[in-house]
Design a protein around this nucleic acid. Structure first.
Length: 160
DNA sequence: GCCAACGTTGGC
DNA sequence: GCCAACGTTGGC
């Protein structure tokens, strides 16, 4: 069982969108970065938990927790010519891109802001990849230690 | 909108 | 394999 952090732009897909989705479940597709693809394809397992991080918005930060509920499967958006994520190089017989299903586990009562995470970057969260300079990966692993510490921040682990 | 820090592409 | 050009990400 692994911990992750998954980024999304709330203007495109937010934690509230996930809350309103059928069975509070969505396909995490559209990933077009090989490192992130490898995490999905090779390392993610059903039951893994991930922080859902809102980026490119007014208050960037962690909005809640999602659970991985499927194994990796070929990303169908790569096969769809009309889809923004269409990739002609990905063939059905040999898919290049993969997706997993995620289900909303909990929405935090407030966003744990990037600013707040940064305040702990030098001590408690010195392993957290999202705080590393230049990191743009949309999916990053989180250590169990960092996971637990983030949950203690201002009681943000209370379920909404 | 700016810009730093990537990743990708393609000519050579 | 090098590397310049270009595209993307994402905080500010």
């Amino acid at each position: 069982m692994n911990y992750w952090l998954m980024k999304t732009e709330p203007s495109v897909f937010s934690i509230d969108d996930l809350a309103l989705a059928k069975r509070r479940t969505a396909s995490w597709d559209g990933v077009r970065n090989y490192q992130a693809r490898n995490f999905i394809r090779d390392d993610m397992q059903p039951g893994d938990l991930a922080f859902l991080y809102h980026s490119s918005c007014d208050v960037p930060g962690i909005a809640g927790i999602v659970k991985v509920t499927s194994k990796a499967y070929p990303d169908a958006t790569a096969f769809d010519k009309r889809d923004h994520h269409y990739d002609p190089a990905s063939e059905r017989a040999n898919p290049r891109w993969f997706a997993v299903d995620i289900q909303l586990e909990s929405k935090f009562r407030r966003v744990i802001t990037l600013q707040e995470l940064r305040a702990h970057a030098k001590d408690r969260l010195n392993e957290l990849l999202i705080l590393r300079r230049g990191n743009r990966l949309s999916i990053t692993p989180v250590s169990a230690r960092d996971w637990r510490f983030i949950l203690t921040l201002n009681g943000a682990d209370e379920r909404a």
